[in-house]
């Protein structure tokens, strides 16, 4: 509990989250806590919990503590832990499930990833293909950090000079993949 209390996160619908976490727990149930995942992770240096520690909390059903950590959001899907896990567990895939569990809860400590992926996938829904400049502009606007775009300004200019990206106004309308997205949402919301 300590971790969740420190960060004072409002988790909202916790019973639902606990249910979803139970599914993820089943994926990693045979974990023997050997720590090979931690030793294989390129992003471990930036995590608050080591991957091994996070999996232990998943096994214990400590949903609040897992969602309060940044660990799963720091997975870059390199699949090294999945490759090396001596129990053959689908660890990277289980991390994906944790990301899906956290996404609708809009947790403040995961905001940058949330906004990035949401704008990316919205762009895909609208156009069928991602428009890099459009979704990055929306991402920057929603992050509301005036310094952030400056870190990418030099690169943006170089890309525009080469005609690789162009300034585009976000288009509206229902979207090319709208029907498919709606169907997927309907299927996922079935009880």
């Amino acid at each position: 509990m300590a971790l969740a209390e420190e960060t004072a996160i409002e988790l909202g619908t916790m019973p639902e989250a606990a249910e979803a976490l139970a599914e993820i727990r089943a994926m990693v149930q045979p974990c023997i806590q050997c720590g090979t995942c931690t030793g294989s992770c390129p992003n471990e240096f930036a995590m608050d919990l080591t991957p091994r520690h996070m999996w232990r909390l998943v096994l214990l059903g400590r949903t609040e503590d897992v969602l309060a950590s940044r660990t799963f959001s720091l997975c870059s899907a390199c699949y090294m832990c999945t490759l090396r896990c001596p129990r053959g567990l689908p660890l990277t895939e289980a991390i994906g499930r944790l990301k899906q569990l956290a996404a609708p809860r809009h947790l403040p400590h995961l905001r940058s990833g949330d906004l990035f992926y949401r704008n990316f996938i919205d762009s895909v829904r609208r156009h069928g293909r991602v428009r890099e400049m459009e979704f990055m502009s929306l991402y920057f606007a929603q992050m509301m950090n005036p310094w952030l775009p400056l870190r990418y300004a030099g690169m943006g200019m170089r890309l525009m000079r080469r005609g690789k990206v162009a300034l585009q106004l976000p288009s509206r309308g229902s979207g090319r993949l709208a029907k498919l997205f709606e169907k997927v949402a309907e299927m996922e919301n079935r009880p």
Binding site: Y117, V124, G128, V184
Partner: peptide
């Protein structure tokens, strides 16, 4: 052809992660 979902679909929806490439 349309987008495969990149790394964004997996952060949002399990089914979408499979349906976008399957299309």
């Amino acid at each position: 052809w349309t987008c495969c979902g990149a790394s964004a679909a997996e952060a949002v929806s399990e089914l979408l992660t499979l349906v976008l490439p399957a299309r």
